[in-house]
Amino acid sequence: MTNHYYQTNPESPHDISTWPFELLDQKFRFTTDSGVFSKGTVDYGSRVLIQTFSWQNLPEGKILEVGCGYGPIGLAIAYASGRQIEMTDVNERAVQLAKQNARQNQIDNVDIHFSDIYSTVHEKNYATILSNPPIRAGKRVVHQIIEEGYQYLQKTGTLTIVIQKKQGAPSAQKKMTEVFGNAAIVKKR
């Protein structure tokens, strides 16, 4: 059977490892496993999102991360900002790792749980939604994160995603403009 990080229950044999990584001037320890995205390091796209995301001017309210994987984006931002962050993923193995990583990094201002995109999120008025979307799951999934995100945001809320140009950034930007009326490139690398 082929296993993908965007499947609910990857069946690949476990290959657990724990390693240190610095994000936002804080040293974290991440435990990862086979069957999750970027198991050997915090991927470049996630690092760019973490480094460029600004929570200081957001409206009051929770932050939602869709597709949290083992947790580097949500945990780094929860630690640095002190804001409450709901972190979701469709991959049960990733959800368990994110919970474990929250505990081992002593981050408790997070709510981590399974959700197929927005199917079981706990709010309807997030200050912002963040995502390093599962590109390999296909354009339909990426566009669903964008399209459905609108109804889960406050009126002044934002949606921030990271996508490489060659992996669909132009079409995602076009979709964001269609849905939200505007879209801006915050950082290009």
Rank of each mutant, 00 (worst) to 15 (best):
66 V>I: 05
151 Q>G: 07
54 S>T: 13
34 S>I: 10
142 V>I: 08
28 F>K: 02
14 H>E: 09
143 H>L: 12
169 A>G: 11
47 R>W: 03
33 D>W: 10
47 R>H: 14
26 Q>T: 11
134 P>W: 00
11 E>N: 11
31 T>N: 12
55 W>Y: 14
150 Y>S: 09
109 N>W: 06
42 V>G: 00
133 P>Y: 03
96 Q>G: 05
70 Y>G: 03
30 F>L: 04
118 Y>Q: 04
122 H>Q: 13
65 E>L: 10
137 A>K: 09
79 Y>T: 09
61 G>Q: 03
175 K>A: 04
156 T>E: 04
102 A>Q: 00
165 K>H: 08
178 E>W: 05
147 E>C: 13
161 I>N: 08
5 Y>V: 02
118 Y>E: 07
138 G>D: 07
18 T>Q: 06
71 G>P: 00
69 G>P: 05
163 I>G: 06
51 Q>A: 14
118 Y>C: 03
134 P>K: 05
189 R>Q: 15
30 F>S: 00
15 D>E: 10
176 M>P: 09
4 H>L: 14
95 V>Q: 03
174 K>L: 13
21 F>Y: 06
47 R>G: 05
27 K>L: 14
89 D>F: 02
15 D>W: 08
68 C>W: 00
131 S>C: 06
177 T>G: 13
45 G>A: 04
166 K>Y: 10
183 A>N: 05
78 A>L: 09
6 Y>D: 05
113 H>A: 02
43 D>T: 01
132 N>A: 04
109 N>V: 12
17 S>H: 12
94 A>L: 04
79 Y>L: 06
1 M>D: 15
102 A>K: 01
84 Q>E: 11
181 G>S: 12
141 V>M: 11
146 I>T: 02
126 Y>N: 07
73 I>A: 03
34 S>W: 05
120 T>Q: 13
80 A>Y: 10
39 K>Y: 04
169 A>S: 08
100 Q>D: 12
6 Y>S: 02
39 K>L: 13
77 I>W: 00
16 I>Y: 08
184 A>F: 10
62 K>P: 05
167 Q>S: 10
189 R>W: 12
56 Q>E: 11
109 N>Y: 07
91 N>R: 04
39 K>V: 13
187 K>Q: 14
3 N>D: 09
171 S>T: 11
93 R>F: 15
94 A>S: 02
93 R>L: 14
187 K>D: 11
162 V>D: 08
161 I>C: 11
125 N>Q: 12
166 K>A: 15
32 T>G: 04
28 F>I: 10
99 K>H: 12
154 Q>I: 07
1 M>C: 11
17 S>G: 14
87 M>S: 01
14 H>T: 14
79 Y>S: 06
93 R>G: 10
109 N>M: 12
114 F>P: 01
178 E>I: 14
63 I>K: 03
147 E>I: 15
71 G>V: 01
109 N>E: 02
40 G>Y: 05
129 I>V: 07
71 G>K: 00
147 E>R: 13
113 H>P: 00
4 H>K: 14
118 Y>L: 06
187 K>W: 15
142 V>Q: 01
89 D>N: 06
117 I>M: 08
93 R>D: 03
